[in-house]
Design a protein around this nucleic acid. Structure first.
Lengths: 233, 233
DNA sequence: ACAAAAGTGTTAATTTTACACCCATGG
DNA sequence: CCATGGGTGTAAAATTAACACTTTTGT
């Protein structure tokens, strides 16, 4: 900060600072969010977005990654984690003044070892667009995450952070459709995607119950072209 | 935050929390930022983005508006103020752990009573795209603000928050050009603007040295409509 | 053979770009 | 009368939107 009065910082009461993490994934073709159930006052029994205190020697991102690892077992710098917004209204937590730096993490559905944190009676995945009632101002935080995700998905290759390394075009389209909540035209979608330079064709096929589908992966250098243009729509 | 261990919050050392405000305006047809000169260690003599501590009973936005009023004399809820990002790396301020919630304010050039804060030896406007060396991580904060402004200007009517109530189309175009740093085609610009439903024609003309120009104002209900493309927070 | 998902082109509509001259006023 | 900024239209190109059938596999 830039002020420069001869403040004695100790004469100011200080708030607690936490990070909250909206952890999103695509499971069962739906956008889902990880929530933990509170055991204690306030909001005992309600579901909440996971979070925790920022320690004095760690950055905000480090704190968020630490919490992410604690909740999901995922400790991978490749996981997409971004800061969303800071929520700091006095009274948002009745126990004390808590300023919370909200983050969003996008994790591919996979072997997420969902280990409930020691302080949660339970943890689970819920439909992000239709969550249970949430503690504190966590409905706002979730809305903020979903809004950001949608905007990212429309303008960057963020969708791939929710997908496994290889995927079919139908899976990719379905991911877009479930995040954006709109139906896309199959032929237009495929034409646009294939002409976008975002995808690399693999040699493999996904054999399933029906006609096998080509598998694609994100083009290696696509991260850089990120901001450039909207892949879809 | 959502964790719920039986934390004793007092056993945690707490960081200081501040708000910093990137105050932007269009002066002399240039995008300019308000900076204050530091008098004391660290970065004595450097220019810095104004800011100050968040008090225990005020929201982050209230703190930012209070600082904005202290620096500029502008105390108007209509001023566009938005939260940008929170900067909290340990060591960003050598005096202590400071977590700063950066904001951006857009003020129309006008009778800004620039009163230097008591702790600043001076305050002044500087070209936002070509600022002097800045204290702390304030270059990052400024870049963040400019990036956000550009994205807002491309997708929302934010540009009008930098303009006086009435303006000519040429002034409007010039505002876009100086914020986006690109030249726009006059006829395409005017056609697009006039067909956008964002503008209301006034009966007045701006008489200057040459042919008078029609004055426009932002359409009353325009705040909602242009939101179409990118919602950010 | 059939059910189910994969894959494939064309046309119309809309949006974006490029581009140059006349008009109204003040000095 | 002239210098200066205000104001205007059209055509080509690019992008987007709408739309239905054939292919391949497993059962």
């Amino acid at each position: 900060m830039g002020e420069q009065k001869q403040y004695d910082p100790d004469k100011y009461e200080r708030p607690s600072v936490t990070v909250d993490i909206v952890i999103l994934t695509l499971r069962e073709s739906k956008l889902q969010v990880l929530l933990i159930q509170r055991k204690n006052w306030p909001y005992a029994g309600s579901w909440a977005i996971p979070g925790g205190f920022v320690e004095m020697n760690e950055s905000l991102e480090a704190a968020a990654r630490r919490e992410l690892a604690e909740e999901t077992g995922v400790d991978d710098p490749a996981i997409h984690l971004e800061q969303l917004h800071t929520f700091g209204d006095p009274g948002r937590d009745p126990r004390m003044r808590v300023i919370s730096v909200a983050h969003m993490a996008l994790v591919p559905d996979g072997q997420l070892a969902l280990r409930a944190a020691s302080d949660a009676s339970d943890a689970g995945w819920f439909p992000a667009y239709d969550p249970p009632p949430l503690a504190f101002d966590h409905d706002q935080i979730l809305s903020c995450a979903i809004g950001r995700l949608r905007s990212q998905v429309e303008t960057t290759p963020a969708i791939f952070r929710l997908l496994p390394e290889t995927f079919t075009l139908t899976e990719l389209q379905s991911a877009y459709e479930h995040v954006l909540r709109e139906d896309l035209d199959k032929r237009n979608f495929r034409r646009k995607m294939l002409s976008s330079d975002l995808l690399a064709e693999t040699q493999q096929l996904r054999s399933g119950d029906h006609r096998p589908a080509k598998l694609y992966r994100l083009q290696e250098d696509a991260a850089g072209r990120h901001k450039a243009q909207r892949p879809y729509p």
